[in-house]
C-alpha cells in the first residue's frame, strides 16, 4: 500500500515544468497587472466588459479545441457562426418562431455541419484542412444566397439579455462560459469518452488497437465543434441584436490563436479546457488595452500575429530540450 502511495503520487518535473505547464497563466497575470496601470482599464465596467467579450469567443474556441485535440482542424467555424446568426434572426424575426425553437433549430443545423465535416474527414479520409475549407466556402455561399448578405435586425430585447444581462456585476455571458468550461472539464478529464479524445490525438492507430472507436470519437469532435460554435455565435448575435452573415469572418484567426495560447498541441493529444479560457482572456485583454491606447484595428492584427508566432516559437523551442 505504501508503495502504491509512492508511485501514484502526482509528481511534477520541478519548478521548470510548473512554469511550462502554466506559462500562459503566469503571462496572463503579468499582462493583467501591467494593464491595470492604465486607469481606463482598471474600472470594474471595463474589466467586466473584457470578460464578457472573451466569453463567447472562448466557447467557440472550446469547440475548436476538441477538433485540435484529435489532431485535426476545423476551418468551417467562421461560416457556421454566420449561418447560426443569420438563420436564428430569420427564424425569430421573419418567421416569428419562439426563441427556444430557433435556438434548437440553429444548434441542430450547426451539429449537421459538424457531421458533414466529420464525414468528409473521417470517412472520406480527406485532410481536415481541405475538407473543412470546402465546407467553409460552400456554407458561406449558402448563407449569402439565403440572406442576400443583408443583416436582419429586430431581435427581441429579452434575447439581448444573453449578452448584456448581469447578475450583480457579473455578466450572464461569463457565467455561461464558466458553466460550459466546467462541464467540458469534467467531460474531458473524468469520463471515458473524454479521455478518448486525448488517446486518439496522441496515437490514432494505438487507440484503435486498444479498442477505441476512433471514427466515432473523431466525428463527435467535429459535432461538438459545431454545437459549441453555435452557442458562441448566438451570444455574439445577442450582443449585436441582429443576424449577420459576416459575424464570424474574423474569428477563425482569434480562435486558433486562443487554442495555441491555451497550450493545445496542434498535432493533437495535449491540451486543457482551462487553457482555452485563459487564452481567450489573454487575447481579449490585449485587444482591449490596444483599443484604450488608441491603436487602430490594422495594427491590432499585426500585434496579434506577433503574439501567435512568439507563442508557437516558445513552444517548439521548449520541446527541443
Amino acid at each position: 500500500m505504501s508503495e502504491y502511495k509512492l508511485k501514484s503520487k502526482k509528481y511534477h518535473g520541478g519548478f521548470k515544468s510548473l512554469i511550462k505547464d502554466w506559462m500562459i497563466g503566469f503571462l496572463f497575470v503579468a499582462l493583467f497587472a501591467i494593464c491595470c496601470l492604465n486607469s481606463n482599464f482598471r474600472t470594474t465596467t471595463n474589466i467586466m466588459n473584457v470578460f464578457r467579450q472573451a466569453s463567447f469567443v472562448a466557447i467557440i474556441a472550446m469547440g475548436e479545441f476538441f477538433v485540435i485535440l484529435i489532431g485535426e482542424m476545423d476551418m468551417s467555424i467562421a461560416s457556421t457562426i454566420g449561418m447560426v446568426s443569420i438563420f436564428f434572426a430569420s427564424f425569430t424575426v421573419n418567421r416569428g418562431y419562439p426563441i427556444w425553437l430557433s435556438f434548437l433549430l440553429v444548434i441542430g443545423m450547426a451539429a449537421i455541419v459538424g457531421v458533414v465535416n466529420g464525414l468528409l474527414v473521417v470517412y472520406g479520409k480527406m485532410p481536415s484542412f481541405i475538407g473543412t475549407l470546402v465546407v467553409l466556402n460552400m456554407l458561406k455561399g449558402i448563407n449569402y444566397i439565403f440572406s442576400d448578405g443583408l443583416p436582419i435586425s429586430g431581435l427581441p430585447d429579452s434575447f439581448g439579455q444573453m449578452a448584456l444581462g448581469k447578475l450583480g456585476v457579473i455578466p450572464f455571458a461569463v457565467i455561461l462560459m464558466v458553466v460550459v468550461a466546467v462541464i467540458l472539464y469534467i467531460f474531458t478529464s473524468h469520463t471515458a469518452v473524454g479521455r478518448s479524445f486525448y488517446a486518439v490525438g496522441g496515437n490514432k492507430e494505438a487507440s484503435k488497437l486498444s479498442g477505441i472507436n476512433v471514427n466515432k470519437i473523431a466525428l463527435l469532435a467535429f459535432v461538438m465543434c459545431g454545437i459549441l460554435s453555435a452557442i458562441g455565435a448566438l451570444g455574439l448575435t445577442s450582443k449585436t441584436q441582429s443576424g449577420n452573415v459576416t459575424l464570424g469572418d474574423s474569428l477563425l484567426f482569434d480562435v486558433m490563436t486562443i487554442c495555441v495560447l491555451g497550450g493545445t498541441s496542434l498535432t493533437g493529444g495535449r491540451g486543457r479546457v482551462v487553457g482555452i479560457v485563459i487564452g481567450a482572456l489573454f487575447l481579449q485583454v490585449i485587444t482591449n488595452i490596444m483599443v484604450l491606447m488608441g491603436i487602430n484595428t490594422y495594427w491590432q492584427w499585426v500585434v496579434k500575429g506577433i503574439i501567435l508566432v512568439s507563442v508557437v516559437l516558445i513552444d517548439s523551442y521548449s520541446k527541443k530540450d
Partner: peptide
C-alpha cells in the same frame, strides 16, 4: 507506433482498453 501512446503516462496507457 501501434502499441503505446507516447504522449500518455504509464497509468493511462495501461488502462486505455
Amino acid at each position: 507506433t501501434l502499441g503505446l501512446n507516447m504522449k500518455f503516462d504509464i497509468k493511462d496507457n495501461t488502462t486505455l482498453p
